[in-house]
């Protein structure tokens, strides 16, 4: 694990661990809900990438904004969302964050600065950059983090907004979650050259970091956020990670593009939760028992939230055009 910065304390570490486990647990439940045909639409699992969302969001405040992706449950949890409202949203229920209209791929939680998931690959890059422009014009010191995957680096929008952000020194951090696969294709087969070099071409300072190391991600993000607040942005991070599930929940027979051995290796040897758990025990921050108790509590929370959401009412039909704008 990367060296911890001195000012963080045991509570911060435990919260990071807890948030990572909450994401993993949320996804396990969401996966089962989907496979058992209780959830409409389509959904994409964040499992395996938890250290990125948590490492980054733990360096942000509620005033800071993020934009999320189609694989966005992890970002939403990490930015402070509650299980109940999230499961309600996934199931289309009235108490969901978007009153059930957003679902898995359009969930937004403005109360914690999550401007929303986006079903369009790379679709939130303009929104994140616009948010940073807003901060600059208003003279506020909040920072916007734009999450996107390696596949999104093929979108032209990214190059347009990085150009603007660099010209105007906007407080935005582009966080590329490189999980090695663009849908069903190895990223090295679709992306020529280096990903960080794409940002460097615009004069944007770019870093590559181990996305399975929550402390490394958090330490880097905290430094970049502080500098972005001082007007030194934008920045670019490439976070090397791995998605445990398929591209989407139905992508279950994957051997034709990715071997089981490779998946096993990442899960057993590079899992962000297992690694951080071992570090917490070694450093004496938590005992195995305490960690097990924490895990069990989260599993219980999630199960309760799922039951609650399953029983919760759908929005009234009269709401069908509420919060829908045509202009």
């Amino acid at each position: 694990m990367a060296d911890a910065e001195p000012k963080t304390n045991a509570e911060d570490y435990l919260r990071m661990y807890r948030q990572m486990v909450r994401i993993r647990t949320f996804e396990d439940n969401a996966n089962q809900l989907y496979l058992s045909a209780k959830m409409p639409g389509l959904t994409h699992m964040y499992s395996g990438e938890e250290a990125i969302a948590v490492g980054i969001c733990e360096a942000l405040t509620d005033e800071d904004r993020i934009t999320s992706t189609h694989r966005g449950h992890g970002h939403c949890v990490a930015k402070g969302a509650e299980f109940k409202e999230m499961f309600c949203e996934l199931l289309g229920k009235e108490e969901g964050y978007c009153r059930g209209k957003g679902g898995s791929m359009h969930i937004a939680d403005q109360s914690h600065g999550n401007l929303g998931a986006n079903a369009i690959v790379g679709g939130s890059m303009g929104i994140a950059t616009g948010s940073a422009l807003r901060a600059k014009l208003q003279g506020s010191d909040d920072v916007t983090v734009c999450f996107f995957g390696d596949g999104a680096t093929a979108q032209g929008l990214m190059y347009e907004v990085m150009n603007m952000a660099a010209l105007w020194k906007l407080p935005v951090i582009y966080a590329c979650e490189n999980n090695g696969y663009s849908e069903y294709t190895r990223t090295e087969e679709i992306a020529a050259g280096s990903i960080t070099a794409r940002a460097e071409a615009f004069g944007i300072e770019a870093h590559q970091v181990d996305g399975q190391d929550v402390l490394a991600v958090n330490a880097l993000t905290r430094r970049l956020v502080e500098r972005a607040r001082r007007g030194e942005g934008p920045f670019f991070m490439e976070l090397m990670t791995y998605r445990y599930h398929g591209h989407h929940v139905g992508d279950i027979n994957r051997e034709y593009y990715r071997s089981k051995d490779e998946e096993k290796d990442w899960k057993e040897n590079r899992d962000p939760i297992i690694r951080f758990r071992a570090w917490l025990v070694t450093e004496g921050i938590a005992s195995e028992d305490e960690i097990e108790a924490m895990n069990a509590e989260i599993v219980k929370d999630a199960a309760e939230a799922v039951s609650y959401a399953e029983a919760a009412p759908y929005p009234d039909a009269s709401e069908v055009d509420m919060h829908v704008y045509a202009d």
Binding site: Y34, L35, S36, A37, M39, G41, L42, V249, G250, I252
Partner: peptide
């Protein structure tokens, strides 16, 4: 054991 839903348009 349930019949899994594996896609958006699958009934």
């Amino acid at each position: 054991v349930t019949m899994p839903q594996l896609g958006m348009t699958q009934d």
